[in-house]
Design a protein around this nucleic acid. Structure first.
Lengths: 341, 341
DNA sequence: TGTTAGCACTCACCGGAGTCGAGTGCTAAC
DNA sequence: GTTAGCACTCGACTCCGGTGAGTGCTAACA
């Protein structure tokens, strides 16, 4: 007993219907609503086969069938294969990014907001990571008598700053001079390299221990990959409550408290390879709290080859084609936006 | 019929019990659990009076009583008046802030996290606002051929930055020279004043339209009060689900989606005067979605007289004394932290 | 051999009746 | 003024039979 064309069409109909209604689908429904030219009895036989093949589950004997994770997987693979991602939402997304976005974080937050609005699911946007960013400029700005702000601009256009203590009374011009030296020596280096180079360089300068120490910490902290997850943007956290799957308060709570922990969420979303799209369905997510969720992700890239991830989390009966299309478009938009800078 | 000592003690017992159990309180419960030396019948009479006075509500005739908003108000006023805020959580909070916090936002996020953990309610922390911050230093850092990063350091130690376009090819030294001029002219001014002064100053410089335009926008945007709300920190969003009052999914959803809109939330939390503590109960919040929530806020201040707000949102049957004590301690800690810088 | 009509069977869901018990208000006695 | 006693109310829970969607199986048909 194999999976012939007809079985597939019936399965597809079942999935479509279930995605729409969240109610177990019966044989009669399929034979009537989706005119297959087959009687309910025939559909029943096929459904029985499909259940045996593992594509359908039956909550109880006198209810209809619901698609299994395996069924969604097949469905999604089909979608991805034939690539019918008609981007109708293109203009909607584009419109949202017309206003100039100033900072990385603004863009990310905004993207998550838009994604969740368009899909009605929970959206997560991770900032770009990838090849270590290289320092372009480093500048020290006086803040008070014994503190300075260190600002680095990297080739990815991302700016990082922190206040560090400086022991001596350093005026603006001195700080500028130091900045120039540091920029000259460190420009083109990654933050990791900078950590190693720092002692050599400062050895030649008049030593200022506190400054050195501060810079060192700063580089160390910022070169740390974990830190990149600091600015995960999440939108539509409570959207999951729109779906009957999560009308159970206990379930909703465990989901929502997972949404609170950015770090965990980031690592869940981030675990993906080079794929343009990733779809993880139910158990495939590897997260118990998401046993009946699906996670769809896409990537975008910045001018200098860094990669970021955008993702949508919803019930397994997700509108995959819609979500994939929207993610695709959003990915393009973000890539464009970031390659501009 | 007035409110005598005994009535008050009974009311207090009812409130305490209801806060604990969230179940309508009967006369028998009071007479047994809180040994008043009175029979249930007497309590019943008193409760009947208290209901007439508007301190108790009866969900239906054969259920116990629940405290009204008016009752909580009395209870809280009493608490505030006698000031018995024993800060047991002092050390817990202090411990959480031992590690150096680098940025304003980190502190704020962290504070919200800690607050929500300690109270088990939803916590909101607003960054300091108040007297317009005054510019201390302004510096332009080259980013690319046609863009520069403008960084201002204000007297409150808050740093704001943005990338602006510059048309001509300006090298690092030129930008530094411009920075020095601008710092000299603008130092001590508020951002609003800077907007007005800008044309005069740049009139004397070699004009660089794009730079001027960019700076103008930057000042404008950052002097805008609304912008200060950009970094509202929220912790324990889903804590509300721990309480039976919000086991109704529909209610939970409307609450949670309110928690998603930072702006609205900020304005709700922020509306308060000079008070050290504010307690708004149920209808007093003025927000329909929070008809059976209470909002408790406290303030903290920075070295230069700016004020921030921290708040906790929970069900009306909130553990007010605990929350007030924790908020008080947190307020102190934050004030200390910010006056340091 | 595949398709279909028919039929008995299953079982979740719904609404109504009955029961239980917590809690009240009232009255009369202390 | 306080309390014991009692009738009454009403939500919560349980039990139960009816209903209907849906299934599996069988036998007939093309």
């Amino acid at each position: 007993m194999g999976m012939d064309e007809r079985k597939f069409r019936i399965l597809q109909a079942i999935i479509d219907d279930y995605i729409l209604t969240a109610v177990p689908v019966g044989s009669r429904t399929i034979s009537k609503k989706y005119d297959m030219g087959l009687s309910s009895a025939t559909i029943r036989n096929e459904m029985s086969d499909l259940e045996e093949l593992g594509y359908l589950d039956q909550p109880h004997v006198s209810a209809g069938r619901i698609p299994s994770a395996k069924a969604y997987r097949l469905y999604v693979d089909q979608l991805l294969h034939q690539g019918l991602l008609h981007s109708d939402s293109e203009s909607a997304i584009r419109a949202h990014f017309l206003g100039r976005m100033r900072q990385m974080e603004d863009v990310i937050d905004h993207a998550a907001q838009v994604l969740s609005n368009l899909t009605n699911y929970t959206a997560v946007v991770l900032p770009p990571t990838g090849p270590q960013p290289r320092i372009r400029t480093l500048q020290l700005v006086p803040v008070s008598n014994n503190a300075a702000l260190v600002v680095i601009v990297t080739d990815s256009g991302i700016v990082r700053d922190a206040v560090i203590r400086v022991s001596e009374q350093l005026d603006s011009d001195t700080l500028y001079a130091i900045s120039k030296t540091l920029t000259k020596e460190l420009s083109g280096r990654t933050l990791k390299e900078a950590v190693e180079l720092l002692p050599q360089i400062t050895g030649r300068m008049q030593d200022n221990e506190k400054l050195l120490q501060g810079l060192n910490n700063f580089f160390q902290e910022n070169s740390d990959a974990a830190n990149h997850h600091a600015h995960v943007a999440i939108g539509g956290r409570s959207n999951i409550l729109n779906y009957p799957e999560y009308s159970d308060t206990e379930k909703a709570r465990s989901f929502l408290s997972l949404m609170e922990t950015r770090d965990k969420l980031a690592s869940i979303i981030a675990q993906q390879g080079e794929m343009a799209f990733t779809v993880r369905i139910g158990p495939e997510t590897g997260v118990p709290e998401m046993a009946d969720c699906s996670i769809v992700t896409a990537t975008y890239s910045t001018g200098n080859g860094q990669q970021g991830t955008i993702g949508v989390i919803g019930p397994t009966r997700m509108q995959y084609n819609r979500v994939l299309s929207i993610l695709g478009t959003m990915g393009h938009q973000l890539s464009e936006l970031f390659s501009d800078d």
